[in-house]
Design a protein around this nucleic acid. Structure first.
Lengths: 188, 188
DNA sequence: CTGAACTCGTACATGAGAGTACGAATTAAG
DNA sequence: CTTAATTCGTACTCTCATGTACGAGTTCAG
């Protein structure tokens, strides 16, 4: 971790590249290295100077998206009634998932099996903890593996994002629909 | 539709190719035309004699899978209590989805937007009809768009298939878990 | 049996995207 | 100011899968 200190312009380039990668890959998970460099307003060679391979770049992009998501979700107050806490958590998670759905697809494609899950562990843990608390409170069901419930929530969130993308669900409705669906799936 | 009659050996080749395509693409959605030809025990050129492009081949494969799925599901008795009918339908749908999940991914990748959905219409209609009946019976919820419920069921089925593939859910448990999850999502 | 349909190997053309090589022009840092 | 880091264009190599072209054998149909 003690690398030769980077110059300010390099930092700036890297930041622009990562931001551009997030945007470009969120619009099209197959976006080319060249596409991303163009979007960042930077030469392709400059990009390769900072990220040796496309997968490395994709990982940086999704890591950044998750990190900024953590900031949002980390600030939430999830105490009190589990049902209400779930609503709050879903409300915030929803927009994050929706924005970065395609980026996630890109990552799944090029990162080694399981890597995405590792990076995503923080978010999953938060949801799992909430579900366990709800179970202790007798609000959530206990007849199914908790890990499955956590993942089922993910699948429904991503499904809803896909429905919106395909124009079969209105953005305005989405949050309510998602919350209602997931609540009744989890509650005892 | 009045094409010059095909010879028996051609029919046989086509059947083997489609079967091989279903298998190969179900194992790996990125299977090459060459992979499939090899799996079919047929020269790549023979394959191209029957399917001009890879997408055409993929479409034939998924169409065949759906057709054979239709046969299974079409024979089900879905009358009577909607809850029980749902259980029966899921029980049968489950294995079909699980087997062909990767094939579906392959189709999504190369067929034009919406094409997969068209081909899949039969299965979706069956589920939708059942849900509507359950709603009339007062067994299923009516507070969310029916189309969304139908799709949510799909997402959970595919999610469960993915969990199995990743080794996070045991095959033996799957059917029960899926049924319990979906039931509580749909019921009033 | 005979012609048309079919099989299938080899070879080639195409296209796209990843990553490398080289070197000149800039620009930040101390 | 001076040096090392950084930018960035051009041009190239590599790899890989798709699809085409040609042609010689093989097999079915009537």
């Amino acid at each position: 971790m003690t690398r030769p200190r980077r110059r300010a312009d390099a930092e700036r380039s890297i930041a622009r590249i990562v931001a551009a990668a997030r945007e470009a890959l969120s619009a099209d998970p197959d976006a080319t290295v060249d596409d991303i460099a163009k979007a960042a307003g930077v030469g392709r060679m400059t990009l390769y100077g900072h990220f040796r391979t496309r997968p490395e770049l994709v990982e940086a992009a999704i890591a950044d998206a998750l990190r900024s998501g953590e900031e949002t979700l980390g600030g939430l107050d999830l105490s009190g009634d589990a049902h209400d806490a779930l609503t709050r958590l879903l409300e915030s998670s929803w927009s994050l998932v929706s924005e970065s759905a395609a980026l996630l697809v890109a990552a799944q494609k090029v990162l080694p099996e399981g890597r995405v899950r590792e990076l995503h562990a923080g978010a999953a843990d938060r949801m799992e903890e909430l579900i366990r608390r709800g179970q202790r409170q007798g609000v959530f069901r206990t007849d199914l593996p908790t890990a499955w419930l956590v993942n089922a929530v993910q699948y429904l969130l991503h499904g809803a994002a896909e429905e919106i993308r395909a124009g079969r669900l209105k953005t305005a409705e989405a949050a309510g629909v998602v919350t209602a669906t997931i609540s009744s799936m989890l509650e005892a």
